[in-house]
Amino acid sequence: MLLYDKPECPFCFKVRIALAEQGRSFEHRPHDAPGVEDERRRLSPTGTVPIVVLDDGYVMTESNVIMEYLADTGAGLLPADPEARATARALAHYSDTRVGQAVREVIFEKRGKPEAEWDRERIAAGAAVWENECLPYLAEALAGQEYFAGAYSLADAALTARFALARAYGLLVPGGFENLQRWYARTSSRPSFAAAAPPVAGGA
């Protein structure tokens, strides 16, 4: 298996977590390595990562397609119960959309810029959605459970990637959301996190 990848991309990050959860070996090809841009554009209609090329040459693009393939062909990413599976998929989608939108506002404004040039209104807007909308919704969804959807799933992989990148750029989980704090401590302590995290999120 070959993975075309970008370290800080949350879509790539969650795929790396899922691969590590299943103990799958893969060859890593950085998105910006010499000649890779042409390869990406040949393999994907958008040229974006992640892209997975299986050993038989089959190509998969789009992170959710890849995650579903991993769940279909390996263990540990979707629970057996149909309702729990639906919950996992819904929360993974929420991670990609609403959580991603909030975190992106902060990351895109801070990354690569001196602090004096930050648009603080944009950062505050993203932080407000994170704290006032995303965290309350996720805390309620997690209530009484160790992991979203009951057992560890692709929802946890997706949300772990988002929370790790949020934390790296100053979006924390404040008091009042203790179950989310415990969840993140739990999920970021799994070996899959250490294997998958980019340097900005504490990885190697």
Rank of each mutant, 00 (worst) to 15 (best):
E133F: 03
A157Y: 03
R85P: 06
C134R: 04
P10D: 01
D119Y: 05
I51R: 02
A127P: 02
V52R: 15
G100I: 11
E37S: 13
Q22I: 01
E131I: 07
C9L: 12
I51A: 00
E68W: 05
L159Q: 02
L180Q: 02
P191G: 03
R89E: 03
D32N: 13
I17A: 09
A33W: 07
A149Y: 05
R29G: 00
A128G: 10
H93G: 04
L154C: 11
W118F: 14
E8C: 10
K110D: 01
R186M: 12
G202I: 11
G175H: 12
A166P: 05
G170M: 03
R41G: 07
A127L: 12
A139R: 00
D156H: 07
Y4A: 05
R190C: 11
L54Q: 15
D156K: 09
Y147F: 15
G35E: 06
I123A: 02
E131C: 10
P45I: 11
R111F: 08
A185I: 06
A194H: 04
N132S: 14
A127T: 14
F108H: 10
G35R: 09
V52I: 13
P114I: 12
A151P: 00
S188N: 03
D156I: 07
A124I: 08
L165S: 00
R98G: 01
I51P: 00
D96I: 06
R24I: 11
A195Y: 01
F108N: 06
C134D: 09
L165K: 03
D96W: 07
E121M: 08
A86L: 14
G150A: 04
F193R: 02
G23S: 08
E62Y: 01
G202S: 09
R42F: 05
A75M: 06
E39Q: 14
V65P: 01
A92S: 12
E115R: 13
E133D: 14
P191V: 07
N64V: 03
G74T: 09
E68A: 11
V65I: 15
A185W: 02
P10T: 04
M1K: 06
G57L: 05
A84H: 09
L135G: 01
P79M: 06
Y58P: 00
A168S: 12
E178V: 02
R190S: 00
R120V: 09
R162C: 05
K110H: 06
E21P: 05
A124V: 02
K14Y: 03
P79C: 04
S189Q: 13
T73S: 07
I123N: 02
A127Y: 10
P10C: 01
E21Q: 12
V99H: 00
G35W: 02
S25N: 14
G23W: 09
S44M: 04
A88M: 08
M1Q: 04
Y137Q: 13
M60Q: 04
Y137T: 14
S188V: 10
M60L: 15
E178Y: 04
F11L: 12
G203A: 07
E83H: 13
E115L: 03
Y4T: 02
R182D: 14
S153K: 10
W183H: 06
A75S: 14
L154M: 15
A102M: 09
A201L: 02
A125C: 03
G203F: 07
